Simulated scan of single mutants.
Amino acid sequence: MSQTAKSLSPNDEGVLTGSPLFSPLSKLEFDAVAACLEYRYIAKNSQVFSEGDPGKELFILLSGELNAYVTQSGGIQRWMFNIRAGDFFGEMSIIADEPRSATIIAKVDSELMVLKDTDFYHFVSRHPMIGVKLLKAIGDVQNTWLEQNSRHLNDLMRWGETARKRAITDDLTGLYNRRFLEGLIKNRFEQGIVQVRNIALLMMDLDKVHAINETYGTQAGDKVIIAVAETIQQHLRNGDIAARFSGDEFAVLLQDTNDDDGRVVAERIRAAVFLRKIPVAQSPGSNEETVISVQVSIGVAAAPADAGDAESLMLRADEALLKAKNLGRNRVEVADSLPCPPPETETA
């Protein structure tokens, strides 16, 4: 960085008076401050100052462009923002006596105007109107920066929440996905929760849903999946977790529930699914609608009574589901239980 004499051209003066720092000043006030400014030239790739340096100067970029970097763990420098003509920086070091918070490097050959801390406080103490305007300008820029970063952080938080939600939910139904539910079940065992609080797992499979896709189209199939998901949710208790495993397969984790109570919840869901009427197109691409119903087979297993780990619990519930399908569908079966009485409704 070199320091040379420089008289301000009309263009230079326009840049400075247009700066957020000096724009509130009158012509006389600006002239008084400008008389105290020092000119400095900084060559491309040279540093203005380094992160952690003590600072006694405030800078206004007259021409060129600067980059600000902060040091991450491992000593890696991360780019933070650009500084362009008219921007000021370094003010916190002279206001709060703080070390430099970033490293500033010239992206191209650049010109700076410098206001030393002694001159800054001279205006604050001897010319309070100028001092107040300078401090207010700094405060306004800080507030704007904080608001922008707050919005940015809020956007990041919303994006992060959206990404997290998409990672654990099924796009079509809004239920949790298989990965989430399987992880939750494993957690219940790993944390020892299952030893003191029973859990039951319902594994569900829609009966002959492929025939619906073939007859009415895949959009009808999606409507059926969504309707069944809604029905399942409507018949759960607080704390119960529903998930779509894949295609027409669903699962529900019931808290504080044994085999018998799990059967009751499963039967409630089975009956509600069977009774729900779902409007779909009469045929693929048709504008005419018809109403259809669907049936579901459900297998129930509980822990710790039926299984000692997550994999065994899911396997036992799957075995009970297979039994329900083999015994005629549209029914509930419990792991290692006697066959349920056949439901009063028609089977597929």
Rank of each mutant, 00 (worst) to 15 (best):
S9L: 13
S9N: 13
P10C: 12
P10T: 13
P10E: 05
P10G: 04
G14V: 05
V15G: 02
V15D: 02
L16V: 05
L16E: 09
L16I: 03
T17R: 14
T17E: 09
S19R: 05
P20S: 03
P20K: 02
P20T: 00
P20G: 00
L21A: 09
L21P: 09
L21D: 11
L21N: 10
F22V: 07
F22W: 13
S23I: 04
S23K: 14
L25D: 10
S26V: 11
S26H: 04
S26Y: 06
S26T: 15
K27R: 14
L28F: 13
E29T: 04
F30K: 05
F30Q: 08
V33L: 06
V33E: 14
A34D: 05
A34F: 12
A34T: 06
C36S: 15
R40V: 07
Y41E: 15
Y41G: 08
A43G: 13
K44F: 07
K44Q: 15
K44C: 09
N45D: 14
S46T: 10
Q47D: 13
V48A: 05
V48P: 01
V48D: 04
V48F: 05
F49K: 08
S50M: 12
D53G: 08
P54L: 11
P54C: 04
G55W: 07
K56T: 13
K56W: 08
K56S: 13
E57P: 01
L58C: 14
L58H: 08
L58R: 04
F59R: 01
I60F: 06
I60G: 07
I60M: 10
S63G: 04
S63Y: 06
S63R: 14
S63W: 03
S63M: 02
S63E: 06
S63L: 00
G64Y: 06
E65Q: 08
L66G: 02
A68F: 07
A68Q: 07
A68S: 09
A68C: 11
Y69Q: 01
Y69F: 15
V70P: 01
V70N: 01
T71P: 00
Q72D: 05
S73M: 02
G74D: 09
G74P: 01
I76Y: 10
I76M: 12
Q77I: 03
Q77P: 00
Q77H: 09
Q77S: 10
R78M: 03
W79A: 09
F81S: 03
N82S: 14
N82V: 00
I83A: 01
I83F: 11
I83D: 03
G86P: 12
G86C: 03
F89L: 08
G90V: 01
M92H: 10
M92I: 10
M92S: 11
S93G: 14
S93N: 01
A96G: 02
D97E: 14
D97I: 00
E98H: 07
E98W: 08
P99S: 12
R100S: 13
S101A: 15
A102Q: 07
T103S: 14
T103Q: 05
I104D: 10
I105M: 12
